[in-house]
């Protein structure tokens, strides 16, 4: 199975990198850019045969290590490779 994990900054947490990218887009002339938030994308290959089996494990991985619950949210999808 393949878990695609997205770690993003929580709402309300200032994102200085996102702001820098936003300003850069604006200076390129994209004047409709309202906001940019940067996050992390991870792919974790897993030796499970069913998505349902691996879901609680991936959740645990996110809680324990992959995301910092103080500043980050996470979501993921699990598919066949």
């Amino acid at each position: 199975m393949l878990a695609r994990i997205y770690v993003t900054l929580k709402k309300g947490v200032l994102d200085p990198q996102g702001k820098a990218v936003q300003h850069s887009l604006e200076s390129l002339g994209y004047d409709k850019v309202k906001d940019v938030r940067l996050g992390k994308y991870m792919e974790v290959k897993l030796d499970y045969s069913r998505a349902g089996e691996s879901e609680p494990i991936v959740r645990e991985m996110c809680e324990k290590l992959l995301a910092n619950p103080v500043i980050e949210d996470y979501r993921f999808e699990i598919t066949e490779e």
Partner: peptide, 10 residues
Amino acid sequence: PGAMMRNRSL
């Protein structure tokens, strides 16, 4: 308690 973010100035 808390977390460290990237410096505001990057």
